[in-house]
Every structure is written in C-alpha cells, then in structure tokens.
Amino acid sequence: MFSEELKTFRRLGFRHVLLQILNFASVLASGLMIYKGLGLITNTESPIVVVLSGSMEPAFYRGDILFLVNPQNKRYEVGDITVYKIPGQDIPIVHRVLETHDVVKVVNGVRQAKPLPENQLLLTKGDNNYLDDRKHIVGKVRGYNDFPQLKYALLGGLGLLALVQRE
C-alpha cells in the first residue's frame, strides 16, 4: 500500500527528510513568535482568545475569536468587555464591566491626586464577581471576528500545506 511512498522516501534520502522536519519546525516557531510578539505590543499574555462559554451570548458564541489589548496605565471603563482569569481556574472568563470604582490611595494621611489604574475595583456581569485586583485581567476586547470556520480553515490549510509542500 505504502510501497510507492516508501520508494520516493528512499529516493529523496535522509537529508531531505531532515529538511522537511526543519521546515515544519520553523513554521511552528514563527507562528509562536508572531503570537508572542503581538502579546508584547498589546501588553496581554494572550492577544487572541477563543470564547469558551456562552455567558456573553448573543454577542459572543462559543468558538468566536476575540482580539485583546491591555493598555498600560489606563483605567478600564464601564461597558468594556474584559477577559479575566481567576487564580486557580484555568478557563478565562469573558464578561462586561458594569461598575468601576477608582479607589484613591491615601499615603500618610494625604489623599493622592489621581487614582491609579492598579487600585481600580471592577464589577463584571454574569456571576457578580468582585475583582479586587487588576492583575487578573488579561485584556479587553477590541476586535471581533464572528467567523469560527475561518480558524479551522486557516489552521487546517496551513497544517496541510506544511505537510504537503515538497519545495
């Protein structure tokens, strides 16, 4: 059954197989580099997330792709859709901010002039989780793509191409 393939395999030689593996590895590495580079620019640990729960329906359904940004030193505003991770839970949650409370720090009895984004309290809708710490927030949704098929098509296509290409 595979005799034909095996024959071409033998004809191409060991070096060619190595080259193929190297090609494959470089494709994977560049993908990871682009992802991490985007994360560096947008200041989030994961700039692109896939929605895993239906808590934001009918806006975002499961499998939709979101593009996140997390601007440094900028407060979150009411209406922003945040993606956050609660420590101890793996699945990031996508919820909208319903309340913001900018706590002003008091240092030695003197109230600071400006509230810092780090001291912001947020209430998001869904399960009524109070977030005491901005640390948990991965980013806010900026862009949106309602086209889950595209993801599969792209990933499948790229994977296929990487395997199939001989040149």
């Binding site: 009411v78 319903l98 309340e99 913001t100 409370h101 900018d102 706590v103 002003v104 109230r111």
Partner: peptide, 9 residues
C-alpha cells in the same frame, strides 16, 4: 465621600 470615583450601570 471618600473620593472614590464610581461609574455604575
């Protein structure tokens, strides 16, 4: 009263 700025929906 404590100087906390609030936005509430």
């Amino acid at each position: 009263a404590k100087g906390v700025r609030n936005e509430v929906v």
